[in-house]
Each structure stands twice: as C-alpha cells, then as structure tokens.
Design a protein around this nucleic acid. Structure first.
Lengths: 134, 134
DNA sequence: ATTATTCATAGTAAATTAGTGGGAATTGAC
DNA sequence: GTCAATTCCCACTAATTTACTATGAATAAT
C-alpha cells in the first residue's frame, strides 16, 4: 500500500503554488519542474488531474501557468491526494470478481479505513503542510 | 494506494482460522484454499508471512496444517496486514533519491498518516472482523 | 506572425504484483 | 520402517500498474 509518485509530486506542486498564492500570478510548469526536480511532461499530467479537481486553474500562452483556485488555508492535503491518486481508493471491492464469489468479510473494513484516512488527511491544510505544522 | 491481494487473502485466512480457533486443531492449506477461493500455492506464500510474524503456527506431515498462535480476540487486523503487506509502509522516503534531493515537505505527513492508519487497524480484532462488528 | 505556454493523447520502459511449478523436509498412520 | 500427506523453500513467469517520454495541436501575449 504505497503512495504513488504522483501523490508526492502533487503535494510538491501544491506547496510550491501555495508559497506563491499571495502574489496572485501564474507559475509555469518549467518553474515548477525546477523547484520540484520532476520533469515538465510528467508534471503536466499531474497538474492536469489537479485542474480537473478544481484545485488549480491555468491560462495558456506566454506568461501562462498555474495557480491555486483557493487560499491554501482552505485546501486540504486530502483534496490534493484524492485528485492525483485516483481517488485514493484502497481496494476495488465493488467489482465483479469479489462481489460474486463470496460475501467479503473485509468490505466494511476497507470502507471504514478509507473514511479514517480521508478524515485525517482533510484536517491538514496546504498551509500547514508547507510550514510543516502537523 | 491499494491494498494488495495478499492483504485481502491474508484476512480471509485469518478469519477462517479464527472461526476454528476453539477446536484447537490444525487446518490444512487445501481446506483454506477451498474456503477462500485462492490457490493453494499462493496461500502457502501468504501464510508463510503470517507465520514469520508469529500470527499462525504450523505442523507438517499428515494431519498437519495451520492455526492461530493466539485468541482471535487478541490478534488485530493491523498485525495481519503488517505481516503480509510488507509492513504497510506507505512510502519509502528514507531512500537516497528522496533524502538527498530536497528536504521532503511531506515526510512528516507520511509518518503521521502511517501512525494514524495503524492505530485504527489495531483497534479491530479478528473476532470483530469475523463478526463484522466494526 | 512569432513565440511561449497549456492541453490532449499515445506510446514505452521499468517495476511491482500475482500467481505457477518442482521438489525437499517432516510428520503421522499403518 | 515405509508410505502418504502435508508444510516448506526457492526459482520462475505472466499480468498489471506505474512512471515517464514523445508528438503535436490549441491558445494567448507581444
């Protein structure tokens, strides 16, 4: 049960954007790539997921780039991770294989564990993460 | 961040053994395979991990098999999952790549999340799991 | 027009997971 | 003491997922 690199890189990006939130300008992927050490092309894909989840917005063209859609105090680590980590689902027990064969003894467990993890992650804002104030 | 099949199957086995705990006899892998729908060979490997973690004990030979080393009230879901799921580590941030390149902004986060998950999983006993009493 | 950027999508290589297979070691039963 | 049933050990393979690369179109500022 590992966090993917997308999860880690997604947080790097989020923190980087959080630092620049007050300036209110767009940061391009090249800058983010340098700040995080992740290739531009890969970051593009990760940021696309964050955009889809309405955590960041973008403009194209020269002087284009990305910024957060909300104050980093109001964005949680949970939101970011759910966006990039394929909804953070811990198990896919809703699928045929498992559902048909047996009454899965652990299904409720996964649900509760999932809730537990998410409610923890939603107590931490990007600001807190950036300041390492956990 | 998905639970592996080993995690699921490990719990199946644990529950199956929990049901038979009072009989105090050994259950062989063929029986467990039928009960869980997992191949014998794969179960062997999974059970080996549980044995290594002292959750189950075994005897060989005819009438051999496996049983729990303790009362299912005293074994937690966390113990089982840590045994089969490569210690449940959520991230391997202690490795060179990550440690050298940047002060990882999320390192504390992973640690706390890990603690959070485990302390939840350790509140649930095999008995509770078997009775779906979460 | 030109240049710098995001956006969309397809492809590939590496790593991990999931599962198979063969056979040695051990134990109980007869 | 032999036989059959079982765990145990280790190597291998197939399938899936992850991580990343590549190409080029769409868009916006100058």
């Amino acid at each position: 049960m590992k966090m993917s690199s997308k999860a880690r890189y997604g947080l790097y990006v989020a923190v980087e954007l959080a630092k620049n939130y007050k300036n209110n300008d767009y940061i391009n992927v090249s800058t983010l790539s340098q700040a995080t050490g992740v290739t531009e092309k890969y970051l593009e894909q990760i940021i696309a997921l964050m955009k889809k989840a309405d955590i960041v917005s973008a403009t194209r063209g020269a002087t284009g780039g990305y910024k957060l859609t909300a104050d980093p105090n109001d964005i949680t680590v949970g939101q970011v991770l759910r966006a990039v980590e394929d909804n953070l689902e811990i198990v896919d027990c809703l699928h045929a294989e498992c559902a048909q064969r047996r009454k899965c003894v652990a299904r409720n467990l996964w649900g509760k564990l999932y809730d537990n993890i998410n409610s923890y992650l939603d107590t931490i804002s990007l600001t807190q993460l950036a300041e390492d104030d956990l």
